[in-house]
Each structure stands twice: as structure tokens, then as C-alpha cells.
Amino acid sequence: MTEPERALEQARATAAAMRADGAYGEDPQGGELAPADAPTPEKLFEWALIDPDLRQVRSTRRLGAPITALKRGLVRLLGQYHAELIAEQARFNVNLVRYVRRLEERVAALEGRLGGASGEEGEPAPPPE
């Protein structure tokens, strides 16, 4: 029996021996999975100012027109609350966009300085519009 305290040592030795015999030679493909669908900075800026479309408030049922009217009426009744929600969200989004933009400008400036210091042509990337 392999003592639990010696199991790792034995596994390391076996792996090394098998690798010497040609096994475990393939690329282990380590690292994290690539991020799936990260939005571009341009998309983030576009999303910053939210503007919900009242036309999306609707019933998907057949003969749902009265329900659609009711839902849109409720949205209008709650207009004050929704305005508060949108204002809070937009304030956060816009300040975040401003913060990201400043960071990008600082990074671009640093890259430019670094390029100049190393004698390379360092052309800072323009911040996204």
C-alpha cells in the first residue's frame, strides 16, 4: 500500500519516469479559458446612457393588446420611480466611462513615454471616441 503521506512523491516519480519513456509529452494547454464575449470600449460607451424602449413593454400572448396597454400604463404610472432609477444608473455609468477614459489616456501617455525612452517609435493609441 502507498502511504497517503508518500502518494504525491510516488506520483511525481511515476510521472517523471513515464515522461522519460515518452508519455505525457503533449502540451498541457494550461491557463485560464479565454474570455467569451467581452464588449469593446466603444460598445461600453454606447451602453452608458441607458434609454429603455417603451415599445419593448408588451404582452407576447395572442390577443394580448389589453395587457400591453395595461403594462404600458403601469410603466407611465411608475414614471417617477423609473426616472430615479435611470438617473442613478446613468450617473454611475457616465462616471465610470469618464474614469475608464482617463485611465486609457494615462496608459497611452505612459506607453508613449516608454516608447520614447527606449528609442522606439511610440505612437500612443488614441482614446476611443
Partner: peptide, 25 residues
């Protein structure tokens, strides 16, 4: 538990093999 800090997949695979095949362990 068998604690393994190693990042080498071969070592972890061999530890798995031990844990499965060594009935006394």
C-alpha cells in the same frame, strides 16, 4: 486528502491513478 500543489497535469493524473488503483490507499 492527498494534497497536491503541483501544476504539472501528469503528476495530478498519476495521483488520480494511485487513488483509483491502490485499494489499500
Amino acid at each position: 486528502a492527498l494534497l497536491v500543489e503541483d501544476r504539472d497535469p501528469a503528476v495530478i493524473a498519476e495521483l488520480v491513478n494511485l487513488a483509483i488503483t491502490d485499494s489499500a490507499l
